[in-house]
Structures are given as C-alpha cells and as structure tokens.
Deep mutational scan, measured.
Amino acid sequence: QAKEDFKKMMEEAKFNPRATFSEFAAKHAKDSRFKAIEKMKDREALFNEF
C-alpha cells in the first residue's frame, strides 16, 4: 500500500520529468506518503520506475 501511495504522490506532484530524485526528495520529504517508504534507496527505485 505504501508503494501505491508513493506513486500517487508522484502523479499528483506533476514534477519536471528532468527533475532529479534529490530535488523531488527535498520538496516532498515532509509528506507522510514519502516517509511511508522507509529506505531512501527504495524511494529512489520507485522514483526511477516512474
């Protein structure tokens, strides 16, 4: 479920497709859906799949 929420957050964010993961992470670090994925490498993997 956390992965689905994370993907939904990325869809809602409508970020620049050229944005890096660190830019995305800095902007969304306080979002509970971002925090729900415990490991940063897992967050980055989901970001890269998107």
Rank of each mutant, 00 (worst) to 15 (best):
A26T: 11
E12M: 05
P17I: 07
M9T: 02
M40Q: 12
S22N: 14
E12I: 01
N48W: 04
A25W: 02
K27W: 08
L46D: 03
M9L: 08
M40I: 13
S22Q: 15
F15N: 07
K3G: 06
R33G: 01
D5G: 07
P17R: 08
A29T: 08
E38S: 10
M9E: 02
A45H: 07
M9S: 03
K8W: 01
F47Q: 03
E23I: 00
K7L: 12
K35R: 12
E38W: 01
T20Q: 10
F47P: 04
K7W: 08
F50S: 11
P17Q: 10
N48P: 00
P17S: 09
F50D: 14
I37F: 05
R43A: 12
N16E: 12
K35I: 15
L46S: 04
F24V: 04
E49S: 09
E44P: 00
A2Y: 09
A36P: 01
F24A: 01
A25T: 08
D31T: 00
A29V: 10
N48S: 08
D5V: 01
K41I: 15
R43M: 02
F34C: 00
F34Y: 15
E4V: 07
F34P: 03
A13F: 13
A29G: 13
F34Q: 15
S32W: 10
E12Y: 00
K30N: 14
M40F: 12
H28K: 15
F6I: 01
F24L: 03
A29C: 13
A26I: 09
D5L: 01
K3M: 11
A25F: 03
A19L: 15
M9N: 04
N48C: 04
D5P: 01
K39Q: 08
F6T: 02
E38M: 07
K30W: 09
K3V: 12
E49C: 05
E44G: 01
E11K: 14
A26R: 13
K3I: 15
P17M: 06
K41N: 13
E11V: 11
N16V: 06
Q1M: 15
A36N: 07
Q1P: 00
E49H: 02
F24W: 05
A2V: 14
R18M: 12
H28R: 03
D31K: 00
E44F: 02
K14E: 14
F6K: 03
E4R: 09
R43I: 07
K3P: 04
A29R: 10
S32C: 11
R43G: 02
F47S: 05
E11Y: 09
A13T: 12
L46Y: 08
M40P: 08
K3N: 04
I37K: 00
E44M: 04
A25S: 12
H28Y: 13
K14W: 08
D5M: 04
A45W: 08
K39V: 08
K41Q: 15
M40A: 09
L46G: 04
P17Y: 13
I37V: 14
H28L: 01
K8P: 01
D42H: 03
P17V: 07
I37W: 00
N48R: 08
D31I: 00
A19E: 15
I37P: 01
E23Q: 06
K8G: 07
K14M: 09
T20E: 08
F24S: 01
K14H: 12
A45Q: 13
A25V: 11
L46T: 06
A13I: 07
M40K: 06
F6E: 01
F15H: 13
N48E: 14
M10I: 12
N16R: 07
S22E: 15
E44A: 04
D31Q: 00
K35N: 11
K7I: 15
F50V: 09
K39N: 13
N48L: 06
P17D: 11
D42W: 00
F34K: 02
K27F: 14
M10E: 02
Q1S: 13
K3A: 08
K8R: 13
I37A: 04
K39F: 10
T20N: 08
K30V: 10
A36D: 04
E12L: 01
F50I: 10
E4C: 00
S32E: 13
E44Y: 03
M10F: 09
M10V: 14
E49K: 09
